[in-house]
């Protein structure tokens, strides 16, 4: 047998790719994370067949919890059809063979990058976040040895100083995504780079939320009904992005997170729901926005 024929034989991978020892190690970390909400549990993250920074933490968490009866939804930027979401969905299709869905309501596990679905999640659902930099204090203090001390002492003065400097400088807190939260009044946590628009959805939700950071080798969790408060000041309360007088051009929704789409070189633009499933669901129910073909038909 020549070396070339050896390479042609596909190796058999375990269910959901990871070997059982690795799954056990990740599972133990998940249980610890759930027991200590907001605390980043170190774990021996594995090299995955996708690059670090492309969702390997979320993939390892999903691979450790997923079973044959699960229905998986994968989104990136709120959409099921973005390149990263497609690649991760294909990975689990190939290695776990579980059912996939685009429908938020039908999913038992939702792996996400950068968004929380608009639809309220239920207690039988698990939301798995992909996290690039799990340490909320990292950009204020690059040293792990220092940030670990701050978490040990629940000493978060540095973070408050940073946010206050923003206010002094800009009149606003200038953090718009990955906006830090306080979990159960004990740990400051990075909610992953979701827009702060999604922060209120973290609080007191019926679904379990798991966070995986592969490259940085950390797992953390928010059990259901956990108190999660976005950091703010009495005279500068936390507020989320809003788009006054804006409707989704496709489904007419308001009060959701919007993608801004540039239409032409004259700078004309429109706004559409970032959550693609939410948008399609509304269109199926007969809600149309100004740019939707059916709406235009109706207006003729």
């Amino acid at each position: 047998m020549s070396l070339d024929t050896i390479s042609a034989e596909a190796p058999a991978y375990n269910f959901a790719y990871l070997d059982e020892q690795t799954k056990r190690m990740i599972r133990r970390a998940i249980l610890k994370g759930i027991a200590i909400p907001g605390y980043q549990v170190p774990f021996a993250s594995r090299e995955m067949p996708m690059p670090y920074g492309w969702g390997t933490g979320g993939m390892q968490v999903t691979a450790a919890i997923i079973g044959p009866d699960d229905i998986l939804k994968v989104i990136d930027q709120g959409s099921d059809d973005t390149t990263n979401a497609v690649a991760i969905r294909n990975f689990f299709k190939r290695t776990a063979g579980v059912a996939m869905t685009f429908r938020t309501a039908d999913a038992s596990i939702i792996q996400t990058r950068h968004r929380i679905p608009e639809e309220k999640l239920r207690s039988d659902q698990v939301l798995v976040f992909q996290v690039p930099i799990p340490e909320p204090l990292r950009f204020l203090e690059p040293r792990e040895t220092e940030t670990r001390k701050m978490h040990a002492l629940s000493e978060y003065g540095l973070m408050h100083v940073k946010l206050y400097e923003d206010i002094a400088h800009h009149g606003h807190i200038a953090t718009t995504y990955a906006y830090p939260v306080m979990v159960e009044n004990r740990y400051v946590m990075d909610p992953s780079p979701i827009p702060k628009f999604d922060n209120p959805k973290l609080d007191n939700t019926p679904a379990l939320q798991l966070f995986g950071a592969g490259r940085e080798k950390r797992i953390y969790a928010l059990p259901p009904y956990t108190r999660v408060k976005s950091l703010d000041f009495e005279d500068h309360p936390f507020s989320v992005q809003d788009w006054p007088d804006t409707q989704c051009a496709m489904c007419g929704a308001t009060g959701v997170y919007f993608d801004e789409v540039i239409l032409n070189d004259l700078g004309e633009r429109m706004f559409v729901c970032s959550d693609s499933d939410y948008c399609e669901h509304r269109q199926e129910a007969g809600h149309f926005g100004a740019e939707h073909a059916s709406y235009k038909e109706r207006m003729k």
Binding site: R27, P68, P223
Partner: peptide, 19 residues
């Protein structure tokens, strides 16, 4: 069936710890 049964056991443990 290690992969399938331990997953099922773990999922119950995870739900128990989370609730």
């Amino acid at each position: 069936d290690m992969a399938i049964q331990s997953q099922s056991g773990f999922r119950t443990l995870m739900n128990a710890m989370a609730r």
